[in-house]
Amino acid sequence: MSFQAYIDNIQSKTGKTPADFNKLAEKRGFIIDGKLNPKVKATEITNWLKEEFELGHGHAMAIYATFKGKTE
Rank of each mutant, 00 (worst) to 15 (best):
M1T: 12
M1H: 10
M1L: 14
M1W: 08
M1I: 12
S2A: 10
S2I: 14
Q4H: 02
Q4A: 09
Q4L: 08
Q4I: 14
A5Q: 14
Y6D: 15
I7E: 07
D8M: 01
N9L: 13
N9T: 14
I10W: 00
I10S: 03
Q11I: 10
Q11R: 08
Q11F: 04
Q11V: 06
S12E: 15
S12D: 13
K13C: 05
K13E: 15
K13I: 15
G15K: 06
K16N: 09
K16D: 13
T17M: 04
T17W: 02
A19G: 01
A19H: 01
F21S: 01
F21V: 06
N22G: 03
K23H: 04
K23W: 00
K23N: 13
K23S: 13
L24M: 14
L24G: 06
L24A: 11
L24S: 10
L24H: 05
A25W: 02
A25G: 03
E26N: 01
E26T: 06
E26S: 07
E26K: 06
R28F: 10
R28A: 15
R28T: 13
G29W: 09
G29H: 02
F30K: 04
I31C: 04
I32V: 15
I32Y: 03
I32S: 05
D33K: 03
D33P: 00
D33F: 01
G34A: 11
G34V: 09
K35I: 04
L36T: 09
L36G: 05
N37W: 07
N37P: 01
N37M: 08
K39W: 11
K39C: 05
V40A: 06
K41H: 14
A42T: 14
T43S: 06
T43N: 03
T43Y: 08
E44W: 00
E44Q: 13
I45F: 01
T46V: 12
T46F: 00
W48I: 14
W48E: 11
W48S: 10
L49M: 08
E51P: 00
E52N: 09
E52K: 03
F53H: 13
F53Y: 14
F53R: 05
F53P: 02
F53D: 12
F53T: 11
E54V: 09
L55S: 10
G56N: 15
G56S: 14
H57G: 09
G58F: 02
G58L: 10
A60N: 13
M61A: 12
A62G: 11
A62E: 11
A62H: 06
A62S: 13
I63F: 02
I63C: 01
I63Q: 06
I63T: 09
Y64W: 11
Y64V: 08
Y64H: 11
A65P: 00
A65F: 00
T66H: 02
T66E: 12
F67T: 07
K68V: 14
G69M: 08
G69I: 09
G69E: 11
K70G: 03
K70P: 01
K70M: 12
T71P: 00
E72K: 06
E72F: 04
E72Q: 05
